[in-house]
Design a protein around this nucleic acid. Structure first.
Lengths: 106, 106
DNA sequence: TATATTTGCAACTGAATGATTGCATAAATA
DNA sequence: TATTTATGCAATCATTCAGTTGCAAATATA
C-alpha cells in the first residue's frame, strides 16, 4: 500500500478536502456535505490523508476535527523546487533567484 | 481514464522521469536504463506524461527525444499557491488568507 | 537488400483504488 | 435510561493502474 503525499493529492476529492480544512478545521460529517459521496468515502480519504501526515485530528467530545498539517504540504513545494529554478532562471536573474532560495531555505 | 498532472506525478517512476529529462532531453531507451523495469513500462509512463502535457516529444530519425514541458509544471505550483500563503504569512495576516481561501472555493 | 535497432500499440494479469453497505462504539440528548 | 448522533472499521465490488510479453512499423547499418 503506497502512501505518500503525491499519491494523496492525486485524488481530486482529497485535494478539495485539503483546501476546505485549510480555511477551517472540520468534522467528517461537515466535510461530507460538500461532496457528492457518502460520509464513509470521505472518512476513507481522511484516513489516507492522516496516514501520510497531511492532516491531523483533534477530538472534541464525540466530534473529531481535522485540520491541515501545513508543514507536510511544504514537501510538495520542496520537490517542485528543482523545477522552479528552471522556469525562474529563464529571465536571467539567476544570481538573485539563487540567493533568495538560500535565504528562504528554513 | 482520469489524466491530470496530479495523477501523473503520483507515480514515483514518472516523477523520476521528469527530474531526469529536466536536466536533458532523453529517448525512451536511455530513460529505461535508469530504472529497474522494461522499456515498455517506461514508454507507458511517457505516454501518460504526454497526455497531460507535462512533456513533449521531438523526433530525430528513428529516435524520439522527450523533454520537459516546464510551463505545465507551473500548474502544480499554482495549486500550491493557496497553501503557500498559509506558511509564508507568519505574522498576523491570517484573516486575509482565510477570507481569500473562502472566496476561491472552486 | 538483409539485418539490427528504436519505438509504439495491443492483450493480458495481479494489485491497488474509490466507493458502497452494514455494523459496532462512544458521546450527547430526550 | 433509551434514543439519537458522530464516527471508525470490515467486507465487498467494479474500475483503474502498472507492469509484462508479443508483435508490427519505421529507420539505420551491414
Amino acid at each position: 500500500m503506497r502512501r505518500d503525499i503525491f499519491q494523496a493529492i492525486a485524488d481530486p476529492t482529497r485535494r478539495a478536502i485539503l483546501v476546505l480544512i485549510a480555511a477551517q478545521a472540520m468534522t467528517p460529517n461537515a466535510l461530507a456535505e460538500h461532496f457528492d459521496t457518502t460520509r464513509q468515502a470521505v472518512s476513507k480519504h481522511l484516513k489516507i490523508l492522516l496516514e501520510c501526515d497531511l492532516i491531523r485530528q483533534e477530538q472534541k467530545g464525540r466530534e473529531i476535527y481535522y485540520q491541515l498539517e501545513i508543514d507536510k504540504m511544504k514537501e510538495i513545494d520542496k520537490w517542485l523546487e528543482q523545477f522552479r529554478q528552471l522556469w525562474e532562471t529563464r529571465f536571467s536573474q539567476l544570481d538573485d533567484v539563487l540567493s533568495n532560495l538560500k535565504n528562504n531555505k528554513s
